[in-house]
Structure formats: structure tokens, C-alpha cells
Design a protein around this nucleic acid. Structure first.
Length: 497
RNA sequence: GGUUCCGUGGCCGAGUGGCUAGGCAGAGGUCUGCAAAACCUCCUACAGCAGUUCGAAUCUGCUCGGGACCUCCA
């Protein structure tokens, strides 16, 4: 079997993945800022890295997956600034900062559950690690790479760049940075415009504040990840993941901070997922084109023609390589929905087909084809997690499964070994690695029993050629979104639309 | 302006030198009480121009078009 290779943003090379400690992987992924509701774009990294996490587990690694919750410091709570201007009386009616953070954290966890994402091993919060962040800032000051001005602390990028390869990850050269005319907060305090805040003094009206050696304030944007990654994964760990838009300045700054504190680049492999776009433009705040996850699930957004289930979205994302942009579109989502349905039905059919007792007369060509397709799945997954190609292979096998089910091909066409391998691969890839699951409502509960009863009654009607009754049952069920299918062997299946 | 990525058939998307990617849609067919589903077949594209090569969607150059980052951002 091929070995796992990943495209390392840090070196821009596809490299063989070799963990620092054999058998163990430490992975840090930048988590959500819980100042608002997650949108479709946010779903991409969490699904992408969930699949990577699952695949590493599948390969037998013991993985410590750390994904933070950014609940402190640098964000503006939605609507707060505006409200403050409108009325000071509203203060008492407003949510406490931690109340707001709790609300969106809960909502985020709910969305992750909908997507069937595994929980990270550790999900540290920024507010829970103020002490660690302060200690780290102190160490950077002691090392001579940060300075304090009016209760704020800034990282000395220019000095760092003299000794370390600043800009290596994001591919930029310090001198070529655009002269910004923007009047950023604290700009006049910085020695150099490239410097970034490690700690910010809190103005009196700022609610989130902590005591520090430099006065009351809050941590800078980048330090939390450095502090928490160091604490739980050590000075250097294996994988650091996140969206491409975090490469600069966030990850570049993380590298600088951690390098000063830990004397080494924090992560060996930097993986970045690309953006989800709408009409070619990145989904994000600045373009005002976000579709919230709750809106995706309910279909309540002007851009949406219908609701899209969590599994449809997950599948939609997996149909593209994680490093490519993925353009949102109703047609594309609907294609994903239908494709997933066909795929899942084939998977369910496969589970129902009895593995032949012995090799009768296997079709050599077909056996080879199936086995080659299965083996390629591993190769494709090992090639920087090419889930799109894996799915293509799976789809090529779908007609084989359905043909066996419909008796177009005898089950004995596949050898026992191939059959078992096929079942194992479909289970491993679809459920364990891709994290897909059935959204069929009748899988549990009493609906399945009711349907079986109706199917039974309809069968009687049909045997009497009472098609009025049988069609009535089928048509009415269809109006409810339940589709009956008469199979070749006389049995009746159903699917939910 | 700097750095960088991309432009694939009606839509979405793999693919980095030769071999049908795949999904969805569309057309025809098989099956079926009728459907649906499934299966079979078809639709064979690579922004433009020039070059390298026996051979290019894939390499090089230029042109056009779009995006990302440089500011909060997944």
C-alpha cells in the first residue's frame, strides 16, 4: 500500500507524512470564533479535518486532536457596538459576553453533531488559558522579541525577521508589504506596522478584561493558539490545520511566537483548506454572502431553493479536493443530494446481499476491476486526502452492486474474498472515514413497522390486481415524501425523498 | 502595487505528458400492471495564441478573464 503524503503549505511540497513519535499524531486545528453563528464556509475546515482525523485513526494512529474555541479578546460581539450607540439603557438587557459565547458555542457543537463530526480530543477555550497566554507573552518579552507600550504588548516582527524566516509560510516578504493607510487601533504605538499585538490594554468600556503584568486587558489574536497548542501538543507537533485565509497573518504570527518560546517551528505539516465561494467570491463577512448553517438545514435563505441536509453538505464538500475552492450553487448541492442518495442505497443494498458461500465461477475481469478500484481508493486517500477521487471510484462500483442486487450479475461473479473486501471498504470509507450516515427516518422508531404494514396491504391488493388500491397507497405515500419501489424479486423497498 | 492560485463538456468537479475520472442534468433502450428505482448505451471538454515534444488539458512564453492573501476572516 502507498504511504500517506500531504501537501505541506510550509514547504509547498507534497511530503511523506512521518509523525514525530511513531504511532502517534498531534493535530491542532483552528476552531471557531464564537461571537456569531457558523456559516457554510466554516463547515469546510471542520468537515475536512474531521475526515483527516478519521483517516489517521483508520490508519491506526493514536491521534490527539486539539481544536480551540476562540471566546476571548479580539472580537466584537455581533450588534454590540451598534446597540451601545443607540441606548445605554440596553446594557442590562444585553447578553453577558460569556452568555453570548456560550450560546454560540452550543450552537456550534450542535452543528458539528449534525455533520457527524467526531469530537476533538481536547477543545480548549481561550478564556480558560489566559494564564498560559500571559506566561508565553512574558517569555517572548524576556527573549527580547516583544515590547510594551501603554499597557499593550507587541511582537517585534522586524527583529524576528532578522533571525528567522518570517513570511515563509505565507510566502511574503516583509519589505514588500503594502503601505497601509488604514488607521488601525494602536498603530501609532507599534514600532513597525508589521508588528502585531500579543496583549491589548482594555479601554474602560471593554467588558472582557483580565489582569496582567501590563495592566487590565485581553490577549491578542494569535497568542491563544500558540499557548494552547504548546500546552497540549508540545513545542513541536505534527499537523496544524485551518483555512487558507488564516495563513497570514494568523499562522505566520503563531509560528513567530512559538518559535521564540519553543525554539522550533510549532508544526511540521501545515494543511490549509480552501474557501467556499458564492458566485466566485469567498463566503465571508466582507462580502455579506454568508449562508448560516441553520439556514442551510432549513432552506431559509434567499439564495437557497430548498433545504440541504447535513449529510448532503458533507458529501458536497467531500466531492472536491480540500485545497480547491468550492463554489456554492443550488444545482451543485442538488446533484450532491441525488448522488449521495444513490450511493447510500447501493451501500445498503450491498449490506443486504449475502456473501457467496464459496467461489463458484468468479468473473476474473470483474474481480480485477473491483479490486483495482478498491486499492486505488487507498492510494487516492494517501495522496493528500483526495476524497473526490475516492468517491469517483466508489461510484464506479455502485452499478456492480446494483446489478448483483437486481440479479443482472450473479453474486458468484465476485469471489468471496473480493466480496468481503468490497463490504469492508465501503463500510470503512463511507462510515468510518468519510463520516457519512443514514438520514433515513425509519431506521429507528415505529415508522418502519407502519410502512411494512402498508406495503403488505398493497401487496395483497396487487395480487388481486386491485391497482386502484395499490396505486392509492403508493401515491399517497409519495405525497408524504416516501417512495415505494417494486423490486424484481417481488419485494418492496422504500426511500425518503 | 506585492505575493499567489485558478480558468475543464449544460451545471459541479478529479486529473499535471500518452490510458473513458466521477456526480447531476439531457437523449435512447431494458425491466415493469403502471410508476419509480436500477441497469445498458450515447453526449468525449480542457480560456485564447504561440512554442517544446513522436505525443499536451497536463511543460514553457505571451494575452484575456476570475479569485485569494497583504485588514477581521474557515
Amino acid at each position: 500500500m502507498s504511504e500517506l503524503k500531504v501537501l505541506n503549505s510550509y514547504t509547498r511540497q507534497k511530503e511523506v507524512f512521518t509523525p514525530i513519535t511513531p504511532g502517534h499524531v498531534g493535530m491542532y486545528v483552528c476552531g471557531p470564533t464564537v461571537s456569531g453563528e457558523s456559516h457554510l464556509g466554516h463547515a469546510r475546515p471542520f468537515i475536512t479535518f474531521d475526515v483527516i482525523y478519521r483517516y489517521l485513526l483508520h490508519l491506526g494512529y493514536k491521534v490527539r486532536y486539539v481544536r480551540n474555541i476562540t471566546d476571548a479578546g479580539h472580537f466584537e460581539e455581533e450588534g454590540r457596538a451598534a446597540e451601545d450607540k443607540i441606548s445605554n439603557k440596553a446594557v442590562l438587557e444585553k447578553l453577558e459576553p460569556m452568555e453570548l459565547v456560550q450560546k454560540y458555542t452550543n450552537l456550534f457543537h450542535w452543528a458539528m453533531l449534525q455533520f457527524n463530526n467526531l469530537e476533538p480530543s481536547i477543545e480548549p477555550t481561550a478564556t480558560g488559558h489566559i494564564v498560559e497566554q500571559i506566561e508565553m507573552i512574558k517569555a517572548i518579552i524576556d527573549a527580547g522579541y516583544a515590547y510594551e507600550v501603554n499597557g499593550s504588548v507587541y511582537f517585534d516582527v522586524k527583529k524576528y525577521a532578522e533571525h528567522y524566516p518570517y513570511g515563509k509560510l505565507s510566502g511574503r516578504i516583509l519589505d514588500e508589504q503594502l503601505e497601509t493607510t488604514r488607521d488601525l487601533d494602536g498603530q501609532d504605538e507599534k514600532r513597525d506596522k508589521a508588528d502585531f499585538a500579543l496583549w491589548k490594554a482594555a479601554p474602560p468600556e471593554h467588558i472582557m478584561r483580565w489582569v496582567s503584568p501590563w495592566g487590565e486587558g485581553f490577549p491578542g489574536w494569535h497568542i491563544e493558539c500558540s499557548a494552547m497548542a504548546t500546552k497540549y501538543l508540545g513545542g513541536q507537533f505534527d499537523i496544524h490545520g485551518g483555512g487558507m485565509d488564516l495563513q497570514f497573518p494568523h499562522h505566520e504570527s503563531e509560528i513567530a511566537q512559538s518559535t521564540i518560546c519553543n525554539k522550533e517551528v510549532p508544526a511540521r505539516y501545515w494543511l490549509h483548506n480552501n474557501m467556499i465561494t458564492v458566485n466566485g467570491k469567498k463566503m465571508g463577512k466582507s462580502y455579506n454572502n454568508q449562508i448560516k448553517l441553520t439556514e442551510m438545514f432549513s432552506g431559509s435563505h434567499p439564495l437557497l431553493e430548498q433545504a440541504y441536509s447535513p449529510m448532503t453538505i458533507r458529501f458536497f464538500i467531500l466531492q472536491t479536493h480540500y485545497r480547491s475552492t468550492l463554489d456554492f450553487g443550488n444545482e451543485a448541492l442538488q446533484a450532491a443530494e441525488k448522488g449521495l442518495k444513490r450511493l447510500w442505497e447501493a451501500y445498503e443494498n450491498l449490506q443486504k446481499i449475502e456473501t457467496p458461500q464459496s467461489d463458484a465461477q468468479p468473473d476474473e475481469a470483474l474481480n480485477k476491476k473491483v479490486n483495482d478500484l478498491l486499492s486505488e481508493m487507498d492510494d487516492n486517500m494517501n495522496d493528500d486526502f483526495n476524497t473526490a477521487k475516492v468517491l469517483a471510484n466508489i461510484f464506479e462500483i455502485v452499478p456492480v452492486i446494483n446489478s448483483i442486487k437486481d440479479k443482472h450479475i450473479p453474486a458468484t461473479a465476485l469471489s468471496v474474498e473480493t466480496f468481503n473486501r468490497l463490504k469492508k471498504y465501503f463500510h470503512d470509507y463511507l462510515e468510518s472515514i468519510f463520516g457519512l450516515r443514514s438520514e433515513n427516518e425509519a431506521d429507528n422508531g415505529k415508522l418502519g413497522g407502519v410502512l411494512d404494514l402498508l406495503i403488505d396491504i398493497r401487496k395483497d391488493a396487487r395480487s388481486r390486481k386491485d391497482y386502484a388500491t395499490s396505486d392509492r397507497i403508493r401515491n399517497q405515500l409519495q405525497e408524504l415524501g416516501i417512495l415505494l419501489k417494486d423490486e424484481k424479486d417481488g419485494s418492496v423497498g422504500y426511500t425518503f425523498q
